[in-house]
């Protein structure tokens, strides 16, 4: 149920992100989901990729500061209220979300990547409420 996410520290420099995506392309690594948290001086790039551990190694070799973080990826219906229902369950069960990002894939589904204070509890309550969660091997399908 736990998905490996890569977090990369990036300085705000023109072209820096392109360098990174170039390296992933050269190594034939597909990016499935992607978000950037930015401040004035730097950003934190978070992404779900195929073969995350290999990708982390490749990026480290090129001098990037990379962290592999555990997250949960949940699938919600792509329609009004779809994400609301899921968030309601999470907050009702007192799980604190550190950060999240979402993207719609196709006509009827959206995927939400969540990092929370307790992933274990998050998985437990979502499973209990029959929410669909991605498995590690599913990533390339996202």
């Amino acid at each position: 149920m736990i998905i490996k996410q890569l977090s990369v520290f990036l300085e705000n420099r023109t072209g820096r992100l392109t360098e990174l995506t170039g390296i992933l392309e050269e190594n034939d690594i597909n990016i499935s989901a992607f978000s950037i948290a930015d401040t004035a001086d730097y950003g934190i790039l978070r992404m779900i990729v195929g073969r995350p551990l290999e990708a982390a190694e490749v990026l480290r070799k090129q001098g990037f500061a990379v962290k592999v973080t555990d997250v949960v990826a949940m699938i919600v219906p792509h329609r009004p209220g779809g994400i609301h229902k899921a968030l309601q369950i999470i907050s009702d069960n007192n799980v604190a979300i550190d950060y999240m990002y979402a993207f719609a894939s196709g006509e009827c589904k959206a995927t939400v990547v969540i990092r929370a204070d307790s992933l274990e509890k998050l998985i437990e309550v979502l499973t209990e409420h029959k929410m669909e969660l991605l498995q590690e091997g599913d990533v390339t399908q996202v």
Binding site: Q5, S7, F9, A37, T39, Y42, I44, R46, A65, V66, K67, T69, D98, Y99, R115
Partner: peptide, 15 residues
């Protein structure tokens, strides 16, 4: 330099 021992993937930690 943000080496890995310094790096957290959360903005609030880095700040």
């Amino acid at each position: 330099e943000v080496e890995e021992q310094f790096f957290s993937d959360e903005v609030k930690e880095l700040e």
